[in-house]
């Protein structure tokens, strides 16, 4: 047997040779290489961005430490902090959560669980998808017309409430879309079983559909809120203050800071500092960006923790 294989290749060997020999195809390697380069270069950009920002801002951040977070804005780069920005961003995010989360979930529940398939439902769904595509600065104009001017009595004009409501409207369509997807993933059998034993629609939703969909809803919502957190353009128009001076000192306390005066937000400060021509502001801006990215990271990590918590609870 050994002699036959050594003298002439068998048919099996020939076939295997032609099949396996072509495994390394130059075109294949080239194409997959190019595709991988396309993917990796986007990730490289991310890495370079982070390295650049950390390289420029980390020194200042470690030098100033927590002081950077608790000192107020100042026109002098040497002692400028981001206190009002952090506070403003937290307040804005709180308003966005309070307004957009219940509204978004309620709208999604209606569209997924109650809505009949008719023209009106179709119109609302299309409309929400289109709203999700409206540029954020246009929401700023809406906020300006409606909350700064029309309802200035209720919002107080250029206040943090105006900014928060504007951002809430901005993220509402995205909130509805992500919640709808979460609800759609809940098996129909669950609803049928619940209604089969006599539960009403709302009882079914409350006790069976929402608990199952909750992890996905929460994750989607947090990602959406994170978007609002980094948003700048709508705030330009709905009253956030750009000034390097900021009248209220940190000692004044959170409530008076937010209600008595105009507000600002962390991304607004970054925008304003990035526009300054002086060299000192580059490090300052980078440090503020690090804080912004760190806060976004915390928010996203909270989403993951919340999802795990609820997933464990439901099983």
């Amino acid at each position: 047997m050994a002699e036959t294989t050594s003298t002439a290749p068998t048919t099996t060997d020939l076939v295997r040779g032609t099949l396996e020999g072509r495994r390394v195809n130059p075109v294949n390697t080239l194409v997959s290489g190019l595709l991988l380069i396309a993917l990796l270069s986007s990730l490289l950009v991310l890495a370079v961005l982070l390295a650049d920002v950390f390289g420029k801002g980390w020194g200042l951040l470690t030098e100033r430490g927590a002081d950077f977070l608790t000192t107020p804005l100042s026109p002098n780069a040497v002692d400028a902090g981001i206190f009002q920005g952090v506070m403003g961003s937290i307040a804005l995010t709180a308003i966005v959560i309070v307004v957009a989360f219940p509204l978004g979930v309620a709208a999604a529940v209606y569209l997924e669980e109650y809505a009949p398939t008719n023209r009106l439902t179709q119109f609302i769904t299309t409309n929400i998808r289109n709203l999700a595509g409206v540029p954020s600065i246009v929401y700023g104009l809406l906020g300006f017309s409606v909350f700064v001017n029309l309802f200035s009595g209720a919002t107080g004009g250029r206040t943090v409430i105006t900014g928060g409501l504007t951002l809430a409207l901005l993220v509402l369509p995205i909130m509805i879309i992500t919640t709808s997807e979460a609800l759609r993933a809940v098996p129909t059998a669950l609803r049928e079983a619940s209604m089969g034993v006599g539960a009403t629609r709302w009882e079914t939703i409350r006790h069976h559909v929402l608990p199952v969909a909750l992890p996905a809803i929460l994750t989607g919502s947090v990602l959406t809120v994170a978007r609002a957190f980094g948003e700048t353009a709508p705030l330009l128009l709905s009253g956030a203050v750009l000034s390097l001076y900021f009248a209220v000192p940190p000692e004044a306390g959170f409530v008076s800071l937010m209600t008595e005066q105009s507000y600002t937000a962390l991304p607004m400060i970054i925008y304003n500092w990035a526009r300054q021509p002086q060299e000192e502001f580059v490090a300052l801006t980078s440090a503020a960006i690090i804080v912004l990215l760190a806060m976004l990271l915390i928010v996203n990590a909270a989403a993951i923790v919340a999802r795990d918590h609820f997933e464990r609870k439901s099983t």
Partner: peptide, 24 residues
Amino acid sequence: FLKPTLEILAGVPSVVLGFFALNF
């Protein structure tokens, strides 16, 4: 591993990319 990394890039606020474009 790669997909979430791409999603992180999607989550970078545009004002940060503006700073990056101007200064890098």
